[in-house]
Design a protein around this nucleic acid. Structure first.
Lengths: 192, 192
DNA sequence: TTGAAAAAAGCACGGCCGTTCTTTTATAAT
DNA sequence: ATTATAAAAGAACGGCCGTGCTTTTTTCAA
């Protein structure tokens, strides 16, 4: 329960800016009562990231893996991911990874390691989805899967920036438009 | 001089994490001696962003505008931008906007406004470069310039993430590869 | 119902934060 | 050389931080 709220706040403020005192106040707990559940702030941050990864796997990756390989799976994965990045409910505001990514990209340590591992794993899923699509004959086998994954990741990142920071109402339309064009290229000259 | 160092540190730590005391220590100044140059921390942050924008305009945009419209200008703009995002010298470590973007995307105020305005302006340059290329007959006039700008921005963002957070040595290669493919699409069926 | 174990609270600590005031030092014009 | 002006320093403030201790409350099995 504590972690759920912590995830929500961390996705707004970032992992560093989130303070234990503030968390305790919001949960109507004493500072030390809350702190008792964690060894340190870094430990809390790691647990937050683990929780986020669990959520991401459950709501973005798992549903996509139930789609058949090729276009349906890739599209589902992309749309879920986009939805994840845009989400603004009580659970999460935007992508919790992003705020963390910028603060941590120059600070080595266990928190950063946890984040990097999660991010690598998610991108690997993207890459593997492309590869499996190729093996299934749905995608152009010439296409560099790693480059494609980086490209798709870019769609999501730029969407996030356009939407959250610049509040561009057309961000989503264009992100989907770019993805569909990407998909078209990917399936170009493929029969099945 | 103060601002230059502040820019360098802010691009590493972010605008919020950067503290006045720390800055003063590094510059061998007293905290209040430094603070005297600014009305508040928010004012310092705004001035940092203004300085960054000036640097970005000078090193990324201006050189690109000296190239002829069309492919050369767009490529130059993209490469400069990529180089800016990757830079790791004494002046700057990575893109200072990015760290700020995530912290601020939910916090209204003058600092955020300054950042949004700068970012909008930079993206407008991107968009306008595409449009001018279209008008000059170098790019496919059907292409939606705004979507293209968002796509290119994605190349840069994903490159930044791959390189800085995940430390992928191939990030740059793939970013350029993706851009060149984008360029190919853009110039498809255009004679001149 | 008692008692071990876990959770929460209370309290205090040193430390850094942004900011304000006052005093000293340096700069530069008369 | 004197003086107005600006820059830096010094000291203090209230506030929040993360974290350790000790004490109280709650939980739950024996």
């Amino acid at each position: 329960m504590i972690l759920e709220h912590a995830v929500a706040r961390a996705s707004e403020l970032g992992l560093e800016a989130l303070s234990i005192g503030q968390l305790a106040r919001e949960l109507e707990l004493s500072k030390s009562g809350l702190f008792g559940h964690f060894d340190s702030k870094a430990d809390l941050q790691v647990q937050i990231l683990d929780k986020v990864t669990e959520q991401f796997t459950r709501t973005v990756i798992k549903p996509a893996l139930q789609e058949p390989r090729g276009v349906p799976r890739l599209r589902r994965l992309f749309e879920n991911w986009l939805h994840w990045a845009a989400s603004k409910d009580s659970q999460r505001k935007g992508c919790p990874y992003m705020a963390a990514a910028m603060e941590l990209d120059d600070k080595p340590g266990p928190v950063r390691d946890t984040l990097v591992q999660a991010q690598r794993q998610h991108i690997y899923v993207l890459e593997r989805t492309l590869q499996l699509g190729q093996e299934a004959g749905a995608f152009d086998p010439q296409y560099d899967a790693a480059a494609g994954a980086q490209e798709m990741y870019g769609f999501i990142l730029s969407f996030h920036f356009y939407k959250r920071l610049m509040q561009d109402p057309q961000a989503e339309t264009r992100a989907k438009q770019n993805f569909e064009r990407f998909l078209q290229r990917l399936t170009q000259g493929v029969t099945s």
